[in-house]
Simulated assay, not measured.
Amino acid sequence: MYGARIARAAELARSAGLDGLVVTPGPDLRYLTGSRADSFERLTALVIAADTAKASVVLPRLELASLKESAVGDLGLTVLDWVDGVDPYAIVAAQLPTGAKVAVTDAMPALHLIPLADTLGALPILATGVLRELRMVKDDAEIEALRRAGAAIDRVHARMAEFLIVGRTEAEVGEAISEAILEEGHTEAAFVIVGSGPHGADPHHEVSDRVIESGDIVVIDIGGPVEPGYNSDSTRTYSMGQPSAEVSAQFAVLEAAQQAAVDSVRPGVSAESVDVAAREVLAAQGLAEVFVHRTGHGIGLSVHEEPYIVEGNTIELVEGMAFSIEPGIYFRGSWGARIEDIVVVTADGCESFNNRPHGLTVLG
């Protein structure tokens, strides 16, 4: 699998007129080799020569043990280790043609990008356009991992009555949810948003010392990775007691908008058309101005990756693309709500990895 990915990366690089790719630790390196190495002040990089698909790994000798946790040995890649006092950027350059046009992963720190550019004699471009072609379309193993992740986060939402209780602070609820995320099969809690009352109107609120009160509308957006590193991300909205008629009516519009976006997904439509599907439902009920973000983002080894479901993104959806569908409505100073599922494009529509009820769940 990893060998095929490296070969495909080289092919895409050639098609883009590139001579090589340099990939430092991060999601792209993990995708291509399975390596979970971290980026330090000493350079570690996968170097792929586009013309031959020959790949080498340049890394500090003291990091050689980290290769045991990757597919580098099985792939038979050339390992070029170096010690302090040796110029690793010269080693990278030696694996590429003179005057090579090189692309680098967007996770490369400036600490390495600048000396690499000096050695190559030219500033590399970003490899995002090449690597996204690989990572956007998930294979069967990746889809199964995302399916497991979705089921795991659904199990956490199913337990929300245990955690989300009037009188607790957002931080206390968040701590309990984080523990449940691990208990239900994730390797970590990547993010936990508990937005109660007016905090629910801030899409990127995390947690605070605010005490959850009766009558609050609470946005719970949670997720994290499951082995081998594929992420969940699901949002549901809860009401601490019976909501008002106005809140119920506005939430019903949001639920219809989210469903309209899901129903619009199929191969051949544009990413932006899914955004439009949600936005039109909200606009028809006068709620366009309170939907303040894109409808979705791709997901995989990164929580946020291509394709982005947003106005202006004309890329056509193809079978195997996985992304969130998460419209929200936000009334600043009052309350907010969001519904989020992860879906994968199928031959004739999409499959949702999240299957908890979408409605405004009443607790307490």
Rank of each mutant, 00 (worst) to 15 (best):
residue 235 T to Y: 06
residue 163 F to V: 04
residue 223 G to P: 09
residue 127 A to Q: 01
residue 88 P to Q: 05
residue 147 R to I: 00
residue 219 V to R: 13
residue 250 Q to H: 13
residue 304 H to D: 13
residue 306 E to A: 15
residue 23 V to R: 02
residue 234 S to L: 12
residue 138 K to W: 00
residue 117 A to S: 13
residue 263 D to V: 02
residue 332 R to K: 15
residue 338 R to Q: 15
residue 19 D to M: 08
residue 308 Y to T: 13
residue 196 S to P: 08
residue 99 G to H: 12
residue 301 L to Y: 08
residue 73 G to M: 10
residue 84 D to L: 12
residue 316 E to Q: 14
residue 280 E to M: 11
residue 322 A to E: 01
residue 52 T to F: 06
residue 37 A to E: 11
residue 325 I to V: 15
residue 7 A to K: 14
residue 242 Q to P: 02
residue 322 A to R: 07
residue 319 E to L: 00
residue 308 Y to I: 10
residue 214 S to M: 11
residue 154 D to F: 01
residue 220 I to Q: 09
residue 339 I to C: 11
residue 101 K to D: 12
residue 151 A to K: 10
residue 299 I to Y: 03
residue 207 V to I: 15
residue 140 D to R: 15
residue 203 P to T: 04
residue 297 H to P: 01
residue 288 A to F: 09
residue 327 P to Q: 04
residue 236 R to L: 11
residue 157 H to A: 05
residue 202 D to K: 13
residue 297 H to G: 05
residue 52 T to W: 07
residue 19 D to L: 07
residue 35 S to R: 06
residue 71 A to Y: 02
residue 317 L to M: 14
residue 336 G to W: 09
residue 44 T to K: 11
residue 307 P to R: 05
residue 204 H to S: 07
residue 153 I to F: 08
residue 320 G to H: 04
residue 114 I to M: 04
residue 357 P to T: 12
residue 111 L to D: 04
residue 53 A to T: 05
residue 265 V to G: 12
residue 97 P to N: 12
residue 346 T to L: 06
residue 35 S to E: 05
residue 357 P to G: 11
residue 333 G to M: 11
residue 185 G to M: 01
residue 101 K to C: 01
residue 35 S to F: 02
residue 268 G to Y: 11
residue 10 A to H: 09
residue 215 G to Q: 10
residue 355 N to H: 12
residue 34 G to L: 04
residue 311 E to C: 00
residue 247 V to E: 13
residue 199 H to Q: 14
residue 148 R to F: 03
residue 301 L to Q: 07
residue 92 V to L: 11
residue 7 A to E: 14
residue 15 S to V: 00
residue 176 A to V: 00
residue 274 V to Q: 06
residue 126 L to Q: 01
residue 296 G to K: 08
residue 204 H to P: 00
residue 282 L to E: 07
residue 68 K to M: 12
residue 252 A to E: 15
residue 129 G to I: 00
residue 234 S to N: 13
residue 206 E to S: 12
residue 46 L to V: 08
residue 276 V to Q: 15
residue 103 A to K: 05
residue 40 F to Q: 09
residue 34 G to N: 06
residue 93 A to M: 07
residue 46 L to W: 06
residue 225 P to Y: 03
residue 311 E to K: 14
residue 208 S to D: 13
residue 201 A to E: 10
residue 166 V to W: 04
residue 311 E to A: 14
residue 106 D to H: 07
residue 222 I to Q: 06
residue 130 V to K: 02
residue 2 Y to R: 10
residue 109 P to G: 03
residue 289 E to Y: 01
residue 228 P to Q: 10
residue 194 V to D: 10
residue 233 D to S: 13
residue 34 G to S: 05
residue 103 A to H: 04
residue 225 P to M: 09
residue 172 E to D: 12
residue 51 D to Q: 13
residue 350 C to V: 02
residue 246 E to D: 14
residue 98 T to I: 12
residue 152 A to I: 03
residue 166 V to C: 07
residue 164 L to T: 08
residue 56 S to Y: 07
residue 154 D to Y: 01
residue 42 R to H: 13
residue 270 S to N: 02
residue 218 V to A: 10
residue 60 P to R: 11
residue 252 A to Q: 14
residue 87 D to R: 01
residue 337 A to S: 14
residue 107 A to M: 07
residue 115 P to M: 00
residue 38 D to Y: 06
residue 10 A to P: 09
residue 254 L to E: 10
residue 194 V to T: 10
residue 180 A to C: 02
residue 13 A to K: 03
residue 78 T to Q: 15
residue 104 V to F: 06
residue 328 G to P: 09
residue 164 L to S: 09
residue 110 A to I: 10
residue 174 G to P: 05
residue 14 R to N: 01
residue 343 V to Y: 04
